[in-house]
Computed example of a mutant assay.
Amino acid sequence: MQFSHSSALWGEFPELAAGALVARGIAPGGSVDAAVARYEVAAQARLAGSAEGGLPEIQAWRRAFSRMGLKPTQYRCASEALLRRFRKEAALPRIHPMIDLCNAASMAFAIPVAVFDIGRIAGGLEVRHAVGDEVYETFSGEVEHPAAGEVVFADREGRAHARRWTNRQSGYSAVRADTTDVLIVAEALHDTAAADVPRLLEALSGDIGAAWSVPVTAAMLSASAPAFAF
């Protein structure tokens, strides 16, 4: 099983900095409160200096969404959506310790972070342009088919686990109470992304190790080394 981006996507977005992390043996009871609080303080500090739309990390994703033909304020990348909600409500709902941790880290770094249940993925994931026959399941259980050309996270059975690149994950592979193994993906396009994404992965690796005492494997991807095998 592996995670990768298509060569076409690397060609269109050579500035992409992407990293992936796998953790095996997690349980719902991991304690992440201290880490989440630390990340929330960092997010608050960033929002005190600028609304989320003014952050360079978010601006880079807005430009990418425009290049993909999407309205940036209609379809927001995951980190922008989280920061926007956090700015308005001063808190995020608690869902699962792993999701809570990744959401908080995403806000602190202003970088989209996706977390998938590996047991719900068939053969691996590739970030690529949709053919148009992929199956995407919403959190409410509705089935959609991404349009041809849309950037999706697709497995080998043609199931889309995220739509519009970093905009909307599927409910099908969302982390739940019985999840044991997770794949975490962080992607950024801003000028310092090549340094920021490894810092994010390192921070998450430490937090996961502290909360669950499980082995963590991480890697950075590139156009010349596009696949992370796990």
Score class of each variant (00 low, 15 high):
Met1Thr: 13
Phe3Val: 03
Ser4Glu: 04
Ser4Thr: 13
Ser6Gln: 10
Ser7Pro: 02
Leu9Asn: 09
Leu9His: 11
Trp10Ile: 07
Gly11Ser: 09
Gly11Val: 01
Ala18Asp: 07
Ala18Ile: 06
Gly19Thr: 06
Ala20Gln: 04
Ala20Lys: 03
Leu21Gln: 12
Val22Phe: 01
Ala23Asp: 01
Ala23Val: 03
Pro28Thr: 05
Gly29His: 02
Ser31Trp: 05
Ser31Arg: 13
Val32Gln: 02
Asp33Trp: 10
Ala35Val: 09
Ala42Trp: 09
Ala42Thr: 01
Gln44Lys: 08
Gln44Asn: 15
Ala48Asp: 14
Ala48Asn: 15
Gly49His: 07
Gly49Thr: 15
Gly49Tyr: 15
Ser50His: 06
Ser50Met: 08
Ala51Phe: 05
Ala51Tyr: 08
Gly54Leu: 07
Pro56Ser: 09
Pro56Phe: 11
Gln59Pro: 04
Gln59Cys: 12
Arg62Tyr: 04
Phe65Ser: 02
Ser66Gly: 14
Arg67Val: 07
Arg67His: 03
Gly69Thr: 01
Gly69Ile: 08
Pro72Glu: 04
Pro72Val: 07
Arg76Ile: 03
Arg76Val: 10
Cys77Glu: 03
Ala78Trp: 09
Ser79Cys: 12
Ala81Val: 06
Leu82Gly: 15
Leu83Gly: 01
Arg84Met: 11
Ala90Val: 11
Ala91Leu: 13
Leu92Ile: 01
Leu92Tyr: 01
Pro93Cys: 02
Pro93Gln: 07
Arg94Ser: 06
Arg94Asn: 10
Arg94Lys: 14
Arg94Pro: 02
Ile95Val: 15
His96Glu: 00
His96Asp: 00
His96Gln: 00
Pro97Asp: 00
Cys102Ile: 00
Asn103Trp: 07
Asn103Gln: 15
Ala105Val: 03
Met107Pro: 13
Ala108Val: 08
Ile111Met: 10
Ala114Trp: 00
Phe116Ile: 14
Phe116Met: 11
Phe116Gly: 08
Gly119Asp: 10
Gly123Ser: 05
Leu125Gly: 06
Glu126His: 03
Arg128Ala: 14
His129Tyr: 09
His129Leu: 01
Ala130Glu: 03
Ala130Tyr: 13
Val135Ala: 09
Val135Gln: 05
Tyr136Gly: 06
Phe139Ile: 14
Ser140Ile: 12
Glu142Leu: 14
Val143Cys: 09
His145Asn: 13
Ala148Thr: 02
Val151Asn: 01
Val152Glu: 04
Ala154Val: 14
Gly158Phe: 03
Arg159Thr: 14
His161Gly: 05
Trp165Ala: 10
Asn167Trp: 09
Asn167Thr: 12
Asn167Tyr: 12
Ser170Arg: 10
Val175Pro: 01
Arg176Ala: 05
Ala177Gln: 14
Asp178Arg: 12
Thr179Pro: 00
Thr180His: 08
Val182Tyr: 01
Val182Thr: 13
Val182Gly: 04
Ala186His: 05
Leu189Thr: 09
His190Ile: 06
Ala193Cys: 11
Ala194Cys: 05
Val197Ala: 11
Val197Leu: 11
Arg199Ser: 13
Arg199Lys: 11
Leu200Ala: 07
Ala203Arg: 15
Leu204Phe: 13
Ser205Asn: 02
Gly206Thr: 04
Ile208His: 07
Gly209Gln: 09
Ala211Thr: 00
Ser213Val: 14
Val214Glu: 03
Pro215Cys: 04
Val216Pro: 08
Ala218Asn: 10
Ala218Lys: 15
Met220Gln: 15
Met220Arg: 15
Met220Asp: 13
Leu221Gln: 08
Ser222Trp: 10
Ser222Ala: 10
Ser224Ile: 08
Pro226Asp: 06
Ala229Pro: 01
Phe230Glu: 01
